[in-house]
């Protein structure tokens, strides 16, 4: 059954080595058709624009990416109606985006960047401007790819996973219930508090 709430990709921070294979895979999978990007570096003729952003500090690293919020602030502020819910996911229609940056400011996670938008190997024109188009770029959960998120598939450390909060909650609830059983084990009274 389709999930009730937006799925999103989360990171096991202990496993991430900051290698950015996820960023490359993300860029590649979104540009196969649009910019003829193939499987080798030689096929890249446009700037590498991922939709998740590996963030590094001295002791840890992880990609920051969209959480497909239910009451999504980015969707709420976009006056071009470029951001909408498709199924359970929050999707940016880059064609409609005018680069106003409201969504970038609204997102508390910094999951949205404004990046150059290329089509057919060339930067798309920006309306009313001589500069090239930049558009809001954020994780779309590879919603058009039947194989699902490329980042999850490519991570060499298996640090990324597709998260369904309801499925995860069920597993956690079972563990929590079993723990309560241990606490209250055995005697007819209540062992936990005596």
């Amino acid at each position: 059954m389709p999930s009730e709430f937006g799925l999103f990709v989360s990171t096991d921070i202990a496993k991430c080595s900051g290698c950015k294979a996820c960023e490359m895979a993300c860029f590649q999978s979104h540009n196969i058709k649009r910019n003829n990007v193939g499987k080798t570096v030689g096929t890249i003729s446009v700037p590498v624009t991922p939709k998740l952003y590996v963030t590094v500090i001295e002791t840890a690293s992880m990609p920051v990416q969209c959480k497909h919020c239910e009451n999504s602030p980015c969707k709420a502020v976009c006056q071009q109606k470029a951001i909408s819910r498709v199924g359970s996911q929050i999707i940016v229609d880059e064609a409609k985006c005018i680069g106003c940056k409201d969504c970038l400011m609204a997102c508390p996670f910094g999951a949205i960047a404004l990046l150059p938008f290329y089509v057919g190997g060339r930067q798309a024109p920006q309306a009313d401007s001589s500069g090239g188009k930049v558009a809001a770029s954020k994780c779309d959960l590879c919603y058009e790819d039947p194989e699902g998120p490329a980042c999850v598939r490519v991570c060499p450390n298996e640090a990324l996973r597709l998260t369904d909060v309801n499925e995860e909650r069920k597993k956690k609830n079972i563990a929590a219930a079993e723990a309560l059983a241990v606490i209250n084990a055995g005697d007819p009274g209540r062992r936990a508090l005596s």
Partner: peptide, 27 residues
Amino acid sequence: IGCKSCAEACPFGAIQMVTLGSARNAD
């Protein structure tokens, strides 16, 4: 904002995301 970070963080699954019938978002 319904980002689900708290639900994800809770080790016990004690937080559930729920859809309200009684309220809607601004849009």
